[in-house]
């Protein structure tokens, strides 16, 4: 379970997140919704440690933790970026296995085996040796998901997972997210797409633009 207590984030003097309190239970899907500019992505970036919150506390399974400085060996938060940010110089398989090998020190064999199991789940079989530029948008996203999962995160975050895709692929993302839920993956999804959010979310968290 992840709890956020009184999380505040300012950019210079501009208040972006004002005293955010929220809870994500294990295995559930939380959707963070709100109009653009409200700070949804900033909130996700604070949770995933890409931005440092000015104040407040993150608590994971009862233990206080600091995502911004979480550089040790506990893999906690995985992120699927809006534009995926696959590494263009690495093949699909290397994109997925690079971090497990370099950070978790897995053997080539183990890393590849685990990658292939996940790839099969997300219909990426046979794409191992392709480079990101050879994939469609939906395939890139699935590679990004497998790459995040390969680090065994406790929570998987998505930033606007539907916005870079064709509208008819929205259904596919829903299916994937719900499939991962069946496997007890805790997921946080930032989206401005209310319909999409309602289809997948156990809880909605509304972020509204700060007045200050």
């Amino acid at each position: 379970m992840l709890e956020l207590k009184n999380i505040t984030k300012k950019f210079d003097d501009r208040m972006i997140l004002d005293n955010i309190n929220l809870t994500v239970s294990d295995g559930e899907i939380l959707c963070i919704v709100g109009p653009s500019g409200a700070g949804k992505t900033t909130l996700l970036r604070c949770i995933s440690g890409l931005e440092k919150a000015n104040s407040g506390e993150f608590i994971l399974d009862g233990q206080s933790f600091n995502p911004y400085e979480n550089r040790d060996n506990d893999s906690v938060i995985g992120v699927v970026f809006q534009d995926f940010q696959l590494f263009p110089n690495l093949s699909v398989l290397d994109n997925i296995t690079l971090a497990p090998k370099m950070v978790l020190h897995k053997s080539d064999k183990d890393a590849i085996e685990e990658a292939k199991i996940q790839m099969k789940q997300l219909n990426l079989e046979g794409k191992e040796t392709l480079y990101p530029y050879q994939l469609s948008g939906g395939q890139k996203q699935r590679v990004a998901i497998v790459r995040a999962l390969a680090m065994n995160p406790k929570i998987l975050c998505y930033d606007e997972p539907t916005s870079a895709l064709d509208p008819d692929l929205r259904q596919e993302v829903e299916t994937i997210i719900l499939k991962l839920k069946e496997q007890k993956m805790t997921q946080i999804v930032v989206t401005h797409d209310m319909e999409f959010a309602k289809n997948i979310a156990d809880h909605l968290f509304q972020v509204s633009p700060s007045n200050e």
Binding site: S48, G49, L50, R71, S75, I77, G78, V79, F81, Q85, L86, F87, N89, L90, L98, A99, M102, V103, R147, A148, M151
Partner: peptide, 17 residues
Amino acid sequence: ESAKVLRLTYWQTIRRI
């Protein structure tokens, strides 16, 4: 950022990515 959330170190990121 993508390398950072995968917890690659700065030098691993520089060298491999």
